[in-house]
């Protein structure tokens, strides 16, 4: 996975699938998950295969996650906020959450 170069001054905490993950202010959700050792962020709606961020620039849509209850968000474009609730997205996103 990924590790941080040096220590970071400004820390926020987010929750991923109920687990606390420390992130740097300025991280995107996808970066925080990669740094936090989370090895996949969703499973596909077609075969259920696990997927992780692939491009980190908003084009591949592999980093789709549920953020604060809203599904199919591009984790690589959304900056972390303290207390943010992130869930990995399993297959077809549930309607109405």
């Amino acid at each position: 996975m990924f590790k941080r170069l040096g220590e970071t001054a400004s820390i926020v905490t987010i929750e991923v699938d109920g687990k606390t993950v420390r992130a740097r202010t300025g991280d995107t959700v996808a970066a925080a998950m990669l740094a936090g050792g989370i090895d996949h962020c969703r499973t596909t709606p077609v075969s259920g295969a696990p997927r992780a961020p692939y491009c980190l620039m908003g084009v591949c849509f592999e980093c789709l996650v549920i953020i604060d209850g809203i599904g199919s968000r591009q984790g690589c474009l959304i900056p972390v906020r303290d207390g943010m609730r992130v869930e990995t997205q399993q297959g077809k996103r549930e309607a109405g959450r």
């Binding site: 990924f2 590790k3 941080r4 170069l5 040096g6 970071t8 740097r24 300025g26 991280d27 995107t28 970066a31 990669l34 740094a35 090895d39 996949h40 696990p50 997927r51 992780a52 961020p53 692939y54 491009c55 980190l56 620039m57 690589c76």
Partner: peptide
């Protein structure tokens, strides 16, 4: 998972120090 683009590695480095 574990396979990414080179650009992604660069973004992780530049934007996030990863």
């Amino acid at each position: 998972p574990g396979v990414m683009t080179a650009g992604a590695a660069q973004t992780a480095l530049k934007a996030h120090g990863l």
